[in-house]
Structures are given as structure tokens and as C-alpha cells.
Design a protein around this nucleic acid. Structure first.
Lengths: 154, 154
DNA sequence: CATATAGAGTTCCCTTTTGGAACTTATTGG
DNA sequence: CCAATAAGTTCCAAAAGGGAACTCTATATG
């Protein structure tokens, strides 16, 4: 199977990754969340090749995660902004930051910390179920597949 | 810059993605969360090439996300299980599923749904700050960088 | 004995993607 | 005229991915 065929896979993990699971893609999204909107700024900050950046921006736009907007004419130049679909990636990004800060240590402290705007203290992200208020863990939640699949447990 | 250099990047997004941001990697992790532990089972379920699967398993083990365990001798055969570090990826996976179910639609219903074990109803994942109880959004949280944004030469 | 199955990989070869650097195009400013 | 800005493209070599066959240990079958 080829990577590109995942887009129509039955599993949402596969479909999600077909959009954001490519090398560099989530880093481009990170730039957008940080307010970086322009090609050259992204390129020099990320150290990605222009070639690949152009491809990622095109793909993210096609998938409705970013939208391209002219910010000047003569010559016309475009910048990239998150759509609502793109903004909805925030929980993934926050969970990733939290995981990496805890589990992919770097000498010295982490260069990005998330602070609560109300307390100015670092946040401790936690996933809960809006319906029940319960913490979401492998013990409180189970995955059901519409097609049957072998046993489970982590 | 090359992808592999991200591992020592200052940004936790980059460091996190250096571990799980490769093609196929999170799909392998998904299999583990579903209780699939063996090479051949993963290979046939994912449709990934054996070649790439072997590489991903090696890398995930090296990064401490999976551990390889012999489940029989003569001939010795190994299976793969999530470590604590791997289990800590659950919020990322759940957020990804939630995002894809909402934003990467498929004809027909999604093949994987997450149900609360207490109510048997689909869950509605929501990220909150354990400290304040506040919902985590771009409006309630801000990212601060310890070092001023790297302008490529530093 | 020969053969078949099981299961975790490896090897080989070809195609696709990525990395690096230079080039293009439109326009302003000296 | 020449340089600068900025969003891309183009070209080529290197790395990663896809497909299929093969290895290696051991059990089971005829």
C-alpha cells in the first residue's frame, strides 16, 4: 500500500495522518499557530527547502487546513493562514508539545512553554470527555471498529 | 536542514515530530494501542512494506516508545509493546481521531469510534488545564519561547 | 526423507521524495 | 543601470519508500 491511499482509509487515524502525517507538515502548521504567515519567513525559520515548503503549503491548502491570501498586489504576494479546520488542530499540537516536553528531553529547558493567560503559569494539559467529565485514558475509553478486529489492551 | 536534525531542536514540536512525525510511525503506534503486537499482523493490517515496518519498529524501540519482548524461544520471536512513554501518546492519538472524524470526512461512517466505558456513548474529547480547569484554546493559552526566535545563524 | 507452514526479519531493485542551490518574475528604490 | 524583496520553480544528486523474493529456525505432515 502507498501512503497516498490512506486518504480514503476507513480508520480516522489513517485519514488524519494522510493530511498532517507527512514530514514537515505539522511544523508548517506550528509556524502558522505562531503567527508566521509568509513563505520566506517559514523557510528560513524551519530550514526546510523551498521546494518542499511550497509542496506542503499547496497540499495543506488543498486539504483545507490553510488558506492562501494575497496581502499585496503588484507584484501579487500571498500569505497563509489557518482555516477553522486548521485551528482545530490545536489540541493535537498542544498534546504533542506536552508529550515532547515530558518524553523527548533536551539539554536545558524546553524552548517553548505554554502558559495560561489567566495565571501566567505553565499549563498541564489533560484530555477529558466533555459529556462525562472523565479523564480520557485507555482505561476509561475503548475503541470500537465498525469492522471486527482481534482482541485488545495495551 | 535535514529532517534528522530535528531531534535536538529547541522546539518541543520539532523534537516530538522527530520521534513520531515520520510516515507510518503513528499508524504503528495505533496498532499497538489496538493490541496488535506482532510483525506479520501489523504488516498485513497496515499494508506497509516489511522493510519500512522493520525500520519503524527499530526506531520506535530506540526512542523508547516501544519495547521488544521475546514471546517464545526456539525460534526466538519478538513482539512489540508500548512503554510508558508510548502510552503517553494516547492524548495525541485521541485528538487526531477526533480531528479526523470531524474534518477529514469519509463516505459512510468512521470505522473507529471511541466510547466511554462507563456510558458506552461516544466521547467528546476536550483539552483542559489541570491546574485551572480552563479549556485550552489559542485564546486561553499562549506559547512563550525561552530563546528569542532563532534567525537561522544562532 | 521431502515438503509445507509459521513468523520475524533482510536483500535487491526500481520509483518517489527530499536536500541544496541556482534561477525566475514583478516591482520598488538608489 | 544595479540591487533588494519575496514567492515561488527548476535541476540534480541523495535518501527514503514500494514490491517482491529470500533467509533462518523450528514444527507438523505425508
Amino acid at each position: 500500500m502507498k501512503w497516498n491511499e490512506l486518504h480514503s482509509d476507513a480508520c480516522p487515524v489513517a485519514r488524519g495522518l494522510s493530511v498532517i502525517g507527512d514530514r514537515w507538515t505539522m511544523l508548517v502548521v506550528r509556524e502558522c499557530f505562531l503567527g508566521i504567515r509568509r513563505f520566506d519567513a517559514m523557510q528560513s525559520r524551519l530550514g526546510i527547502t523551498r521546494h518542499v515548503l511550497a509542496d506542503r503549503l499547496r497540499t495543506l491548502e488543498a486539504d483545507g487546513v490553510l488558506r492562501r491570501e494575497a496581502y499585496q498586489d503588484r507584484p501579487v504576494r500571498y500569505e497563509y493562514r489557518l482555516t477553522d479546520r486548521g485551528k482545530a488542530l490545536y489540541p493535537i499540537l498542544v498534546s504533542l508539545i506536552d508529550w515532547a516536553n515530558a518524553h523527548v528531553p533536551l539539554e536545558g529547558e524546553s524552548a517553548v512553554t505554554l502558559l495560561s493567560r489567566s495565571t501566567n503559569q505553565p499549563i498541564a494539559p489533560m484530555l477529558i470527555d466533555r459529556n462525562t467529565g472523565e479523564d480520557i485514558t485507555t482505561r476509561t475509553v475503548r475503541a470500537v471498529m465498525n469492522e471486527p478486529v482481534p482482541p485488545q489492551d495495551g
